[in-house]
Design a protein around this nucleic acid. Structure first.
Length: 214
DNA sequence: ATCCCGAGGG
DNA sequence: CCCTCTGGAT
């Protein structure tokens, strides 16, 4: 691996998917609270499904104050198509309540505070930090984990270990955008089952690409 | 390790 | 028809 290996990859990703974390984020939102909710809903579903649900959800419950007192069954109906709908409906209503009660309606910025909220794990907390607040945070989801392994940036299967290793390889200013760039590349080219190495721009610097395309 | 859970892609 | 999707809590 080494520094040069990462820099080569990071540089190519910047060309392929230009922009900062906020620009690259595919989730629709107006406020930090809305991004937090959208990210909780994004578990095991597509961003398109989340955006369709939040379009309706935020029209009816735009603020934590309003979502906190929402009818759970109605919320479940709205988020139904994102999957895990009972769990998600309960989580986001409870989440809204805690934001109101514990944080005066304002989403906290510290990772340790964010991860105490229901439905908010390390990945979600880092999304909010990097996309919304412009703070250092490198979300590791299934795409980031898979591409990090394939590219030879980490050999760990543990998301938190991968996060630490990637953070050590990149400047803080690139943490958020790098994560989103890996996600976009994972969706377009480096898919889980059928990676298109033959048309991958990163193949020359990828440990896992077949020799024929490097 | 298992559960939550629908929808679209390959 | 199987797999995967911007996971988190128990």
């Amino acid at each position: 691996m080494g520094r040069q290996h990462v820099e080569q990859i990071a540089k190519q990703l910047e060309v392929l998917y230009p922009g900062d974390a906020k620009t690259l984020c595919a989730l629709h939102f107006e406020t930090p609270f809305q991004l937090l909710v959208a990210t909780v809903l994004s578990a095991q579903t597509t961003d398109a499904a989340v955006n369709a649900a939040t379009h309706v959800l935020f029209a009816r419950y735009p603020t934590p104050q309003e979502l906190a007192i929402a009818d759970i069954a109605n919320v479940a109906e709205i988020v139904y198509s994102t999957g895990f709908y009972r769990t998600k409906a309960n989580r986001i209503v409870e989440l809204a309540g805690q934001i109101v009660d514990r944080y005066q309606g304002e989403v906290p910025e510290q990772l340790e505070e964010l991860t105490t909220l229901p439905g908010v794990g390390r990945k979600t907390a880092n999304v909010v930090r990097s996309v919304c607040f412009g703070l250092p945070g490198l979300p590791v989801d299934t795409h980031v984990a898979r591409l990090s392994n394939r590219l030879g940036l980490s050999s760990s299967q543990n998301a938190e270990v991968i996060e630490q290793e990637l953070c050590g390889l990149l400047p803080e200013s690139r943490w958020g955008s790098f994560s989103l760039q890996l996600i976009l590349h994972g969706r377009r080219i480096c898919r889980a089952r059928t990676p298109s190495c033959f048309r991958c721009e990163l193949a020359p610097s990828c440990d896992s690409a077949p020799a024929s395309v490097r």
